[in-house]
Design a protein around this nucleic acid. Sequence first.
DNA 1: CTTTCATGCTAACACGTGTTACTAACTCGT
DNA 2: ACGAGTTAGTAACACGTGTTAGCATGAAAG
Lengths: 349, 349
Amino acid sequence: MKGPALQRKRVTSRDVAKVAGVSRTTVSLVLNNVQGIQISPETRQKVIRAANELGYVPDAMAQALVSRRTKAIGLVLTRTHHHIATDAFLPKIISGLLTTAKQHNIRTLIDWVETEHQESAYFELARAKRIDGMILSTPRLDDKAIKALESADIPTVLMGSVAGSMLPFVDVDNVQAAEKAVSYLLELGHREIACISNAPPEYTAAPERVQGFRNAMAKAGAPVNERLVCFADFDPESGYRCMKSLLESGERFTAAFVASDNVAIGAKAALREANLRVPDDISLVGFDDIPWAMYSDPPLTTIRLPAEALAQQACTLLLNLIQGKEGWENNHVILETELIVRKSCKAIQ
Amino acid sequence: MKGPALQRKRVTSRDVAKVAGVSRTTVSLVLNNVQGIQISPETRQKVIRAANELGYVPDAMAQALVSRRTKAIGLVLTRTHHHIATDAFLPKIISGLLTTAKQHNIRTLIDWVETEHQESAYFELARAKRIDGMILSTPRLDDKAIKALESADIPTVLMGSVAGSMLPFVDVDNVQAAEKAVSYLLELGHREIACISNAPPEYTAAPERVQGFRNAMAKAGAPVNERLVCFADFDPESGYRCMKSLLESGERFTAAFVASDNVAIGAKAALREANLRVPDDISLVGFDDIPWAMYSDPPLTTIRLPAEALAQQACTLLLNLIQGKEGWENNHVILETELIVRKSCKAIQ
DNA sequence: CTTTCATGCTAACACGTGTTACTAACTCGT
DNA sequence: ACGAGTTAGTAACACGTGTTAGCATGAAAG
């Protein structure tokens, strides 16, 4: 496959040139298929044959150095160790990213930024020119970081919108989606509805989803009991704690909108512990439609978030940005959500 | 933070040298803190001050080119698009990898190899010298690919052992772990036990876990009903299908060992559809202890696989390999598993 | 016979860094 | 005063590629 002799030495374009009996320049011109230049078909063949014979693969670092393109993008995660480990969405995002990246022959670098050293880490990646651009997942940015990013010279796309930022982003309409979910509960006759957010309010999407809850309630003329609004923290355990405290508060409710399936899993565990059954005693609507939602017991009614499509769009947007297609700047993409009705909700009789 | 004027031009070590009034060499020597060389403290200060003032960050590509180290490792996934998207373990592996990598100031590149183009893709990454080494997750390798990898000049660590390979790997003792799980069921008095594997037998770990099942049954003198042994395919849906076909086969069983929590989730859905309750009608033991196992209804008894620790060990092993610490070659790490007893099993009376 | 022009290819530079060999100046013991 | 040794720093090369300017050669045009 690689020729008879096993070569441990690095094969460079100079070696190919020597074997083909041409100059290194010609090798480069032929293998990169440069247009508007004249090379005889025989020479082309000689070069290509030599390259195959030697198993020549151009050095990515050298290419990057001279072309000033690394052909790599970065996915930057901005959450804690623990939240990354229990993120049910990460696989979908990675899968989506890899698919699109591969189509464009681009590599994906993944990095994790501890919140304390945010800025320095952003810059390290950016200024070291290790990547051509980056995607920030679930950004939680203060004004300083946003400004630093906007003024930095590295193309950036956010997954999740950030108020006050001019950076391009990809997202769903969280307000409208949450409204859809809560409206469904209201249509089933529920009036006393609890709301557990997906994350603390400083994270993207969290306040929007709670706002959607409020909007739906207001439209239906149902009062919002503030004691039934609670902020979780991404993982099932936080959902468990939220639901437990809601139950212990003694406030009455017949349904709950949980703005994350992952959190809902924990919330349901708390209900079970209190001998409350879903949907007979409490109706539950989730958000995200993680792969396990449909296999939950009972199957969880939820809002489907097109995670893979979001990642793909983010990647496409970023690649356009990198290629300098103007008119893409400050642009954004909003994808549609869908209410998936399963069996975790029941009408009030 | 970066000085008054916003510089869009790239800052090189030459610029730093000019500002500090020294040669580029001196800049390199100072900033890399090269030992055994004499530079006066005042010059050192001048250089460091100039570097900070200009916001100098060395170009990673240029460094890689000259040092022949990219300071990046690759995580290579060898499964289908869909299996990656629904992999409950990927976040933990990534989390573990990132932690260890960050400690050593190493970046992580993630790539995905469609099974058809396996070899070419391996080599592309390796020969292009984009990474210093790679970790292969859930390898499914035929002999040709193994040999190609062994003879390639890129350090490689497998996550999951492969029979007949000399490559270093990180794994648990799958046979023993499965034995532990099934022994637990046997101790509870079960004799007619079904076995659903985590994956097709050509993948690592799958045959081992089934073998563990057989061993435990043999030791207890319980006959293995071959019609109750079934191979799933990573995701819940395959578990659902397996369990459904087991139920439709008409063969009697009181418990099932499911060699993957992810698969078990689907299997449980099939049981529920058949109006069978866990653990009252059927006892269930899973494998992996994914984050959702403890929040399942009922909480799933399972074998805990130390996924993050495995990733960390794999990373450490790889870094040793890259640094050329001999004595680490052909080495491997086996981590311990643990039976986590929850509420999905019941004793036979 | 000279001038123009296309063809086929190459020498030479640039990218930004790490590192080795070397030099100039200065100290010091005798 | 003089060779020996230390100190502080630099010039020059290497890494492997992409790209521009230019050089022969031969053919066509005047």
